[in-house]
Amino acid sequence: MWTGIKNLFSGKSSRDVAKGRLHLVLAHDRSGLEGGRLQEMRAEIAAVIAKYVPIDAEAVEIQIETRSRSTQLTVSSSIQPRNV
């Protein structure tokens, strides 16, 4: 209860922050992919998508996450509406 109220004002608890960081760190460790390399990959993928559909290349998101020993790579991008 108190924790709930505290988090409402101060953002996440340090416990939640630790959990989030661990999910990320372990995903990188297990895949052998450093955070910086992941961003390079993001830029390349964004460029490929932009060849086919209009997108905001900066808004392409890449995520690597691990849940219970399996690791998931997700790329998401919203497509800009065509101005007809």
């Binding site: 924790t3 505290k6 340090s14 416990r15 630790a18 959990k19 661990l22 372990l26 219970s68 020993r69």
Partner: peptide
Amino acid sequence: LVRRGDMLSQSDVIEILA
């Protein structure tokens, strides 16, 4: 510390390490 939200709980650790 777990109750205060300042330490991972045992179930957090199990979930992460599976």
